[in-house]
């Protein structure tokens, strides 16, 4: 196995409150470069929670996440933000494109935040990303002028803006028709294969999950092996 890009060591997340709710607990996971991982499991099993923890969007209440060998337990909010900016890219079920910015403008937001290159260069790079995802001719449009599948591809382009090591997708095909969903998964597979980008996606679509290189199954916030899920189903 290649060196781990993302590693979870015994992470758990408990929502505080009068009755504390455990979202996930005791997760040990190591995901390497270029892996295409599907996190699956029933509703409420903690798939998204695990994804947010791996993506440094949320902090575990126990355990720690190691990104490219760096332990993030001690990092402050600004450091986590910097890591998200340069190393991670998110795609959500909803596209979350800024409605006032053009397609190109949306893709350029992470680039502009990271800075370091002149605006013209960023523009060229963003255009290249859109071209690559088959949206080259949509660059000047507003998100509201695109179809759902196109919007989600723009969101992927935005996630790829700063050439991240890891793409984290939370039900990215949840709002898409089968054809668009397949396009999205094809893009992910190609990214993992061609650029070595690690892709971690939450999905409840068995057909799509089957196309990934590895599956991580969650039940009630805990990792389970395939057989232990299948067992009660077959017994039924």
């Amino acid at each position: 196995m290649t060196a781990a890009v993302v590693e979870a060591r015994g992470i758990g997340r408990v929502l505080p409150g009068p009755v504390p709710v455990t979202l996930v607990e005791g997760i040990d996971l190591s995901i390497g470069e270029g892996e295409f991982v599907a996190i699956t499991g029933p509703s409420g099993s903690g798939k998204s929670s695990l994804l947010y923890l791996l993506g440094l969007l949320d902090r575990p209440t126990s355990g720690t996440v190691i990104l490219e060998g760096r332990d993030t337990a001690e990092a402050d909010a600004a450091e986590l933000a910097a890591l998200r900016l340069s190393k991670l890219g998110f795609v959500f079920q909803f596209h979350f494109l800024l409605p006032e910015f053009t397609v190109l403008g949306n893709v350029m937001i992470p680039m502009r935040k990271l800075g370091g290159s002149p605006e013209a260069e960023l523009r060229t790079r963003a255009q290249a990303l859109l071209d690559d995802l088959g949206l080259g001719d949509q660059a000047a449009k507003l998100p509201s002028q695109l179809s759902g599948g196109q919007r989600q591809r723009v969101a992927i382009a935005r996630a790829l803006a700063n050439r991240p090591r890891v793409i984290l997708a939370d039900e990215p095909t949840g709002n898409l028709d089968t054809k668009s969903a397949q396009t999205v998964f094809d893009i992910f597979a190609r990214l993992a294969r061609e650029t070595g980008t690690t892709v971690i996606t939450v999905t409840h679509d068995e057909g799509l999950a089957a196309q990934t290189s590895r599956r991580v199954n969650l039940v009630d916030g805990r990792l389970v092996t395939r057989s232990s899920i299948d067992a009660p189903l077959t017994a039924k």
Binding site: L57, A77, A78, A81, R84, F90, F96, I109
Partner: peptide, 16 residues
């Protein structure tokens, strides 16, 4: 609030 959330997930800091 959605825009704020996505901007934060992209990597904008609280100060931003």
């Amino acid at each position: 609030s959605r825009d704020i959330a996505i901007l934060k997930s992209i990597g904008l800091t609280e100060a931003d």
